[in-house]
Amino acid sequence: MEDYKSFSDVELMTKVTGGDSSALEQLYDRYSSILYTLVRKIVIDQAVAEEVLSEIFITLWQKRENLSLPGNNVYAWLITFARNKAVDRKRRNENKGSYPEYSDDYENQFIIPVLSKTIEPIDLNTALSAQTKYEEALGKLTDAQKFVLYLAYYEGKTQTEIAGQLNIPVPTVKSKIQLSLTKLQQNLESV
C-alpha cells in the first residue's frame, strides 16, 4: 500500500486528477485546517464554513480532469480557490437575490483561480515555515495599510466598496492597495 503521507502536494494532486480518492483524502487531511480557518474568517458562521469547505473538495474532485496547476503550486491554488469560494458565499448571503446564478461557467470564470504561468512552487510546509517572516513583514505596515488589506482579502470588498466604507476616493484606495502589497513585498525581502 502506498504511503500517501509521504507524498508531496503535487504528487497528491496528480493522483487526484487521475481519480485516486485516497490522494484526495490525504489532501483533505493536510489542508482542511488552513482552508477551514481561512473560510471561517471570511464567512464567520461555522455551518456555512463547513459547507464551503465541503464544496471546495467536492468541486476539486468533480473538476479533477480539467484542472490546470501552473507552476505546480498546489498551496496557492487551494488557498485562492477557498478564498474565492468563501467570498462569493459571503457576498451572496449579503446581497440575496441580486447576485448572478452560480453556474458551472460562473465558477470557471470567477471562482477557479488562474495562477500565474510562472508562479514559484510552494507547498503547505514551506508556507507554514514562513509564518514568522510574514508576521514581521506585516507588522511593519501601517494600521491603514493593514486595514485595507483586511477589508479586501477577508471582508471580500471591492475597491469601490472599500472607498465607500472608508469614505475616501476610489483612486486613493487603489493606490493604498498597491502600496500595501508593494511594501509587504519589500518588507519580506528585508526580513
Partner: peptide
C-alpha cells in the same frame, strides 16, 4: 506574469497568520 505570480504567492501566505481552527470530523 512573474510579478503577478509573486503577488499571488504573497497574498496566499496571509491565512498562515490566522489562529488555526480544525473542522468537525463530520465534514469529512
Amino acid at each position: 506574469w512573474q510579478e503577478y505570480g509573486h503577488y499571488q504567492n504573497i497574498v496566499s501566505h496571509l491565512p498562515i497568520l490566522l489562529d488555526a481552527e480544525i473542522p468537525d470530523q463530520e465534514v469529512k
